[in-house]
């Protein structure tokens, strides 16, 4: 079957996600948030945008859209589930990933290409990369500041997939564009099959657009979906 790209009212990166997956030879279908049957999906993408206008809290209302029960079911049974930007926020609101996303440190929207470093290859987003790889990926968010109250909750440390860094691979406050806890740019559940990523890998898939570093991430995702028996 195919990868399901979920569309909420206010989602705006659904066509880009589908286009990028198609470039990699994969087929994706757009699924409206009121549909509640994803049987047969080999993977799920929650793309970027401003689902439900980001009202109340980003992702808060989307998380209760009819389709989300099905997304949760698939995610919990190990179907590769990728939330990009707003999709990351929704996965956190839904409790599928730890933490939450709040306004950027400087209270400004950030649109620029950032460098991220691969921290773990044990995820559906990074299985084709090596730890330490540096990737140039466009960041586009206002609420991209990842907050993880682990210190308060005493929860296990998160499965960090990507971190913001500079061109030499060093992380720190200066290289952290939005104030995210420990410069976290992408995080996975314990199994590595549910991933939230703040920068947009689908915007870095062609030379003409400035970077192709997103390809290896989406290829990892696509190959994970290929082994799913739906």
């Amino acid at each position: 079957m195919t990868i399901a790209v979920v569309v909420f009212p206010g989602t705006n990166c659904e066509h880009d996600a589908r286009y990028a997956l198609a470039l990699l030879g994969s087929h994706a279908e757009l699924v409206w948030h009121r549909d509640d049957d994803l049987s047969g999906a080999t993977g799920v993408v929650l793309p970027g945008g401003f689902a439900h206008g980001d009202y109340l809290r980003t992702g808060a209302i989307a998380r209760f859209s009819p389709v989300m029960a099905e997304v949760e079911r698939l995610a919990r049974q190990g179907t590769p589930t990728l939330g990009i930007c707003n999709g990351f926020q929704i996965l956190c609101e839904a409790g599928l990933l730890p933490g939450a996303l709040v306004a950027n440190r400087d209270l400004r929207f950030i649109c620029r290409t950032v460098t991220v470093r691969v921290e773990s290859t044990d995820s559906i987003l990074t299985s084709h990369t090596s730890v330490g790889d540096l990737l140039q990926i466009p960041l586009n968010s206002y609420e991209g500041n990842y907050v993880l109250p682990a210190a308060i909750d005493g929860a296990p440390s998160p499965n960090v997939v990507l971190r913001y860094c500079d061109s030499s691979g060093a992380s720190g406050k200066q290289m952290n564009p939005n104030g995210s806890t420990d410069s976290i740019a992408a995080v996975a559940d314990a199994n590595g099959t549910i991933v939230g990523v703040m920068p947009h890998p689908e915007r870095a898939v062609e030379d003409i657009l400035g970077s192709t570093d997103g390809r290896v991430l989406l290829e990892s995702f696509v190959s994970a979906t290929a082994s799913v028996v739906a």
Binding site: N12, H15, D16, R108, F109, I110, C111, N140, V205, E206
Partner: peptide, 11 residues
Amino acid sequence: ISSQYDHTLFL
């Protein structure tokens, strides 16, 4: 100014 605008959407 321009980094506050999403300028890469739509590919």
